[in-house]
Design a protein around this nucleic acid. Structure first.
Lengths: 253, 253
DNA sequence: ATTGTTTCTGAAAGTTTTTGATGGTATTTT
DNA sequence: AAAATACCATCAAAAACTTTCAGAAACAAT
């Protein structure tokens, strides 16, 4: 049973998505290729983010919503410090709009205990804050994306039109001189509506995102009021940000 | 039955989340690994904060899941059987609207694996289904109620106006000859809009609810198409339901 | 068609990680 | 205090992973 390379990889992908977890041996069986070949396929599919390699086989990467495996670049210590800095900017009684993402989730964690009104389209953030008695929580509905657990699409955009908050806290996939980027068209569409709803935009990110763009263009730099980042950021980028009239907070870690 | 490392750990996590507490011996049994291995897994999961190790086993450390308290009268076994009966009525590919509540949550659990479109305003249900690759999940937004984790209010009602599904699955606080009741005005308001969105209304409940009303009137009996209940229901009530032209499914337990 | 080039494949050797078992230490129970 | 139970550290075997290499297959150009 000989198979084309792409055909085989497609087939592996389907099996993994279907079963959730597959062992390497199972794949050898059902695809009819050698161990080495399957390994290489898994390596490739993991590289493009379609699956997650695990010892002994592969797992569907859609399950990665839980903190089970968080392979972001910032260490969790760094991330927590950056998140703390953002949380400190929020005054009691404020209305805050929060985008999804692991960094904003960490911010949410630091907000616990404050008296606030929080609006979010992120399921993990909602989970975290729903039982905080001091926090009024409003959920933005829409189609839920498995990987990240955020609500997107027409419904989300429509709901956001009737929202007005003091601050928006958002994270991005990339920043260049031209502006901000994120990885997904639907995500960007929803986030653009978020800008309309907020008086002030705070971007939380890590220093590795500077200089990199991503699939979808989000907005020009001047849409942003404030950027909070770890101290890995270069002097050049500090200049770029400040010259664009954006307030910059660099968190020492 | 040999299991992949990550698969096993995820499986342990699920068991712990589900039961609240599990002994080490139980885990050895149900995942089929040695004491050492389970210990190491627990150590790891505790390390990343997903569970709490305790002498003799592990406990769930979760932020939200356990806080949706289960104050229903039905035993969990009974409830699961009733939920199973409801889940069996749903055909693949269907669009289902699901209300919040511990019974409907159990139904959601039984729906896992089916290919479906699910619309819900319940945070716990969304959590449960968001990582099911076969399920398209749409979240209804609104103000989140801490105790139950459901989204209610004007936003929820508005969002529901653009929803159309085959079936609505709903639970109630009380049933009398006059109709259905629930405990909260906002809840009722949202649920009334749900009726508009569905072709067929299925009520899941336990037999103790018959003859009791509650704070807020929801709808007359003839709004309902189908009631599923445990076998504690009296003959008198069976008559009432059938005479109202409602299909009745009594689940033997 | 043939030759040279590149990519893909399967096998083997060597390295790392995981696993279950064992014996010893802590903690709880009787 | 003794017994029972649970925990921890260590170790050799097993399983899984990486690297490397030579042959096969695909591709391009003559």
């Amino acid at each position: 049973m000989s198979m084309l390379l792409d055909e085989r990889r497609e087939s592996i992908l389907k099996i993994v998505e279907n079963k959730g977890f597959v062992s390497l041996v199972d794949l050898m069986d059902s695809v009819g290729a050698s161990e080495s070949t399957i390994r290489r396929d898994l390596e490739y599919l993991d590289g493009i983010g379609q699956i997650r390699r695990t010892r002994g086989g592969a797992a569907y990467s859609g399950e990665s919503l839980s903190t089970f495996e968080d392979r972001s670049f910032m260490s969790s210590r760094q991330k927590r410090q950056v998140a703390q800095a953002v949380a400190n900017m929020i005054s009691p009684g404020e209305a805050v709009l929060m985008d999804g993402g692991t960094t904003t989730l960490e911010v949410a964690r630091q907000l616990a205990g404050k008296q606030l009104q929080v609006v979010t389209n992120s399921l993990p953030i909602a989970n975290l804050l729903v039982n905080q008695p001091q926090i009024d929580l409003m959920l933005i509905g829409g189609f839920l994306f498995p990987k990240t657990g955020v609500a997107l699409g027409k419904t989300a955009v429509e709901s956001l039109k009737s929202v007005h908050v003091r601050r928006l806290i958002i994270s991005v996939g990339g920043i260049t001189e031209d502006g901000l980027y994120n990885s997904n068209m639907l995500l960007v569409e929803t986030e653009q509506q978020m800008f309309e709803a907020a008086e002030e935009v705070i971007v939380v990110t890590d220093s590795t995102k500077f200089g990199h763009s991503a699939l979808a263009y989000l907005c020009p730099l001047d849409t942003v009021d404030h950027i909070v980042v770890d101290d890995g950021i270069t002097e050049e980028w500090k200049d770029v940000i400040r010259k664009a009239g954006i307030e910059l907070t660099v968190v020492e870690t």
